[in-house]
Design a protein around this nucleic acid. Sequence first.
DNA 1: TGTACATCAGTGAACGCGCGTTCACTGATGTAC
DNA 2: TGTACATCAGTGAACGCGCGTTCACTGATGTAC
Lengths: 244, 244
Amino acid sequence: MGQPTLRRRDRIRAETSSEIKAIALRLLAANGPDAVTLRAIARDMGMTAGAIYSYFDTRDDLITALIADVYGSLADAMENARDSVPAADPAGRVLAVGHAYRRWAVTHPEEFRLVYGDAVPGYHAPANGPSKDAEERACAVLVELVAAGRPNRDEDPAAPRYDWTDFGEDYAAGIRKLFPELPPAALALALRTWGRMHGQVALEIYGHLRPQLVTPEKLYEDEMLDLATTLGLGVPGGSGREAT
Amino acid sequence: MGQPTLRRRDRIRAETSSEIKAIALRLLAANGPDAVTLRAIARDMGMTAGAIYSYFDTRDDLITALIADVYGSLADAMENARDSVPAADPAGRVLAVGHAYRRWAVTHPEEFRLVYGDAVPGYHAPANGPSKDAEERACAVLVELVAAGRPNRDEDPAAPRYDWTDFGEDYAAGIRKLFPELPPAALALALRTWGRMHGQVALEIYGHLRPQLVTPEKLYEDEMLDLATTLGLGVPGGSGREAT
DNA sequence: TGTACATCAGTGAACGCGCGTTCACTGATGTAC
DNA sequence: TGTACATCAGTGAACGCGCGTTCACTGATGTAC
C-alpha cells in the first residue's frame, strides 16, 4: 500500500504550506507589510528561512499565493452577502454586497492593502495577474447585481455607447460565458459599481476619511442607496420592479 | 552688508533642498517607490548620503516633504480645472475637476500611489498627517462643487441625517471658515464625491481596470456625468438651474 | 518481522547586498576688524 | 585691501541591520524485498 503513506507525506506538505501562508497573514495583520519576510515567517514557525524554499520557489511566489488566498476570501464574503438576500430584492442585494465589501476591508485592512495596493515592498506580480480567479468571482457578483436591474434601465442613454471591443478579450469571454445575454453596457455599469464601492472604502482604509469623518459607515450607506437608484433597482426590500 | 550674503547661503540651501526632492521624485517616477532611498538620491546628485542629513533630519521627513509637494501639485491641478470653467456652469466644473483628478493620476501614477497608497516601504506618516494643507485645498474644491448644486437639492432625503458632530472638529472648523453657510450634509456629499472620483481612478492606477477594460476614460466620463446628476447640477454647459 | 536502501524535509552556515544613520574631518565660503 | 577667525556644507569611512537565496549536510520517514 504505497498510496496511503505517499498521501500522508503529501498531506503534511500541504499542511505546512498552509501554515506558512497563515503565519504570513498573521504577520501582515499584526505588523504590516514590511514584516512579511521569509526569515520572519521561518522564525515564527521555528524553522530555518531556507526551508521555505521547498514550498515556494521564491518570496514573490509566496506573496502571489497569499494574494490569491486573500482575494478569494473577499470573493467569499461578497458571494455570501449576495446569497443572504433573496434574488427578488435586488436593491437589498446591492446594499448587502456593498456593505460586505466595506466590512471585509475594515476587518482586514492589511489584506485589503495587499490586494488593492502595493503592500509588499519589492513585490512584482506575475504577468497574468496574481489571482485571476478570485477577481473574476468578485466581478461576477457585481455583474449579477447590475443584470438584475436591467429591465428598469432600458432607456439608459449610456447603454449604446459600449460594445464588446471596449473590454479585454479574455475578460469579456469569461463574463459572457457566465451571462450569455448580457449587453456590454451592463458590464460597464458593473465596473462602475465596483469603482463606487471601492472609492470610499479605499479612502477610509488608507486614512483619508477617518480623522475628518467620524461616521464613515453612514456616508457609505448613503452612497450605496444612491448606487441602487442609479442601477434602477428601486429601494431595498422591494421587488426591484417598483421604481421610486 | 551681512544680509545679502547670508541670503545667498540660504538661497543655495533652499535650491539644494529642492533638488533633493526633485531627484527623489524623478527616482520615484522612473523606478518606483523602492528606488527612493537616501543613498540613491545622493548618488544621483554626486553627493554623499550623509550630506542629506543637513537638509532633512530623517528619511521619513524627506518623504513627508515629498508627499506635501506632490499633494500640492494635485490640488493645483484641481483648482486650475475648476477655474477653467465658468462658475455659471457647475456641472461643467464637476466634469473638469473629475477629469483633472484622473488625468493627474494617469500622468503621475507613482505620485498618486505616494499620496493615496503606502508607496514607500517602512514610511510612517507623522501624526497630524503629512500634508494637511493640500488635502484641505483639494477638499475645498469639492465642497465648492457640491455647494453650487444646493438649490436643486433641497429635497434631498439624506440631508437631515448629518450634523457637524459627524465630522472631525478641526476639519469641520476649517471648512466652515471657508463656507460659513454650508450645511453638514453638503460636506458629506463632498466626501462622497471625492470617493466617487477616487474609486475608478484607484482601480485603474493599481491595474485592476486596465487589462479588463480597454477604454477607462469612457467609463469615467459616464461616472462623472452621473455624479453631476446626483449633485443636482443638471447637464454640463447649462446654468445648473435647468434640471434634466 | 527484519534489513538495506531511497527519499526528502529541514539545518546551519555562509554569500552579497543595500539600507539608514553617525561622526570626526576638511576645505571652501563668509565675517569682523 | 588684508588678515585672523567662524561657519558650515559636504566627505568618507564605518556601524549594525535584516534581507533573499544557496548549498552541502543530517536524520527521520517511508519503500522494497
